[in-house]
Amino acid sequence: MTKPASVGAVEELPREKIEHFDRELQAILKRYPPDRKAAAMLPALRLGQEVFGYASPAVQRLCADRLGVSAARAEEVATFYVMFHTEPVGAHVVEVCTNVSCSLCGGERIFEYLKKKLALANGQTTRDGRITVREVECLGSCGTAPAMLVDEEMYERLDVQKVEQIVGGLK
């Protein structure tokens, strides 16, 4: 799809990145019936987040435009699902599960440790923009608890030493 974005705010996004987004979106759209483009809203926002850094209002409007729905639809989806970041986040996002099975094995302690080590509250980013830490709900790793996601990849059977190693190794 090469047609220019019809919404003003999309102009704030870099042109070459929009082209990249549009190319990748074509592959995604193939998965859905041609008359059901709107179904691609979740993958489109995910793609937008990858390409532009986060699901900013401009990214939301870009997705809405390409899928032929209102900007309000894109915004309500972007703000409903916790994996979409509607505010800028750090270069790395560390998400610790503190739900029951994880906390029975030390998950809450790990989250407290990380916040203290990085001097952050839940959801905050280090001043150098490197790491965002946040608490998340059950990750489906209850048998291999405690668990966390780093940049959406799962790390399991954690303890403070392991977390120290993993987070210490983030560039």
Partner: peptide, 27 residues
Amino acid sequence: IVVHRGAGAYICGEESALLESLEGKKG
């Protein structure tokens, strides 16, 4: 067969919310 990934919402395991999510909406 198409894989459709969610984006972090427990409610989307409820079957009708799942359908909404699959249609590209909030759950």
